[in-house]
């Protein structure tokens, strides 16, 4: 399952992120890396919003489809 498909309000664990090192590195620096646990504040339509390390991050749909997660 990807971040794009997660229901609003659920907590998920990130399993894998597809993409270049650049994107992965920038995501990791704000707390989105394999193994991290985040809460999905809002799901599509529109961007996905996650709560991570105390801040809210909006993830575009294209990016959200590249983040593989599992429900906690």
């Amino acid at each position: 399952m990807t971040l794009y498909e997660v229901k609003e309000g659920s907590r998920v664990k990130i399993l894998n992120i597809t993409g270049g090192h650049g994107v992965k590195n920038r995501l990791a620096a704000i707390g989105l890396f394999p193994g991290a646990e985040v809460k999905v504040v809002k799901s599509p339509p529109g961007p996905v919003i996650v709560e991570v390390a105390g801040s809210r991050v909006a993830v575009g749909q294209g990016m959200a489809k590249k983040v593989e997660v599992e429900r906690l």
Binding site: V23, I30, L32, R56, V57, M63
Partner: peptide, 10 residues
């Protein structure tokens, strides 16, 4: 295009 992969802190 790489920079298109979008996320932004709110």
């Amino acid at each position: 295009r790489e920079e298109c992969e979008f996320f932004i802190e709110l």
